[in-house]
Amino acid sequence: MNSGTTELAWFKSSYSGSEGDSCIEVAIAEQGVHVRDSKDVTLPAFVVARAEWTSFMRFVSEH
């Protein structure tokens, strides 16, 4: 799912450095969490269901 991703409010983690050379950006929307490469925002983004994103974030924060 890539349509409409330009209207989303994209953001990077507050842990991203100011150089921003190895980051992803996320945008939270009703249909899910959109994820894209911050180095080349012209590449297609992908969408993860909110429940799966929550599980992923929980896993990352615990490890």
Rank of each mutant, 00 (worst) to 15 (best):
R36Y: 08
K39P: 03
M57E: 12
E25C: 01
A29C: 08
F56R: 03
G20P: 00
A9T: 11
A51T: 12
V41C: 10
F11G: 09
E30S: 14
T6S: 15
M57A: 15
P44V: 05
A49F: 01
S14F: 00
C23G: 03
V48D: 11
E25V: 01
E52D: 15
V41S: 14
A45L: 03
A27N: 02
V48T: 13
S18D: 09
K39L: 10
K12V: 14
L8Q: 09
R58W: 00
A45P: 05
V35T: 09
F11D: 04
S55M: 08
H34R: 13
A49K: 09
L43K: 12
T6E: 15
A45K: 04
L8W: 10
G32D: 07
V41W: 02
V41K: 12
V35H: 07
E52F: 02
F46E: 04
D21R: 14
K12Q: 13
S18L: 12
S55A: 15
K12W: 01
C23A: 04
E30H: 12
A9C: 05
W53Y: 10
P44L: 04
F46R: 10
M57P: 00
V60Y: 06
Q31M: 06
E30C: 07
L8I: 10
H34V: 04
V48L: 15
V60K: 07
G20N: 11
I24M: 03
S13A: 07
Q31G: 06
A51R: 13
V47R: 13
R36F: 09
S38P: 00
N2F: 07
F46V: 15
R50E: 13
D37S: 02
G32N: 08
E52P: 01
D21E: 14
I24G: 00
F11Q: 13
E25I: 01
C23D: 05
A45F: 04
E25K: 00
V60T: 11
N2H: 10
K39F: 02
R58S: 11
E52H: 11
A27C: 03
V26D: 03
E52Y: 02
G17V: 01
S22K: 10
